[in-house]
Computed example of a mutant assay.
Amino acid sequence: MDRPWEADTGAKLWRRLGKSALEMGNTSASPSCPDIWELDNGDIAVIGRDLTAVYGDRLPPDVSIGPDERLVVIPRNMLVAAKPDIPDA
């Protein structure tokens, strides 16, 4: 399948967007998921709960999840905290 965009598996985690899960109170013992990172090529990596199976049959008609994709959910406060780090364009 020829896609206009493909993830660069050689890209490295460059900088966290927002605050860590520990800072946000979204983890109790260690700085584990969820998290949002900018990669060194500008793409974004999101670490969250894999809820692909839960939402798979509830997607709007114009949304699909490819066989090599997953729908992940993160707490709203993580994305809100990342907003200042996300460029407008």
Rank of each mutant, 00 (worst) to 15 (best):
S20V: 05
P31S: 06
D40S: 11
I86D: 03
K19F: 06
D2W: 03
I47Y: 12
A81L: 08
A81E: 08
D2S: 10
I47M: 12
N77W: 02
G48E: 02
D85T: 05
A82R: 02
E23F: 06
A53C: 04
K12V: 13
M24I: 01
G10L: 06
E69G: 00
G18M: 13
W5G: 05
A81N: 11
P84L: 07
K12G: 10
D8V: 05
L59K: 02
V72W: 03
I86W: 14
P60E: 01
T52P: 04
V54R: 08
K12H: 10
A29P: 01
I44T: 11
P31I: 06
T9L: 13
S30M: 09
D68G: 00
R49S: 05
D8E: 03
D62E: 07
D62V: 06
A45L: 14
M24C: 14
N77Q: 09
P67T: 12
A21S: 15
I36V: 13
N41D: 15
D2P: 15
D50W: 01
A81P: 10
L13M: 09
T27D: 04
L17N: 04
W14Q: 11
A7F: 13
N26L: 11
L59Y: 00
S28Y: 10
R58K: 12
V73N: 01
S28V: 13
L39N: 14
N41P: 15
D35M: 06
M1S: 14
A45K: 08
R3K: 15
K12L: 11
V63Q: 03
D35Q: 12
R49M: 07
D2N: 14
P31R: 05
T52V: 02
P31A: 07
G48L: 01
D43I: 00
C33K: 14
E69I: 00
W5K: 10
S32R: 06
E38N: 02
L13G: 05
G42Q: 12
A53T: 13
W37K: 09
E6H: 12
E23V: 07
A81D: 14
N26T: 09
V63F: 06
P34M: 15
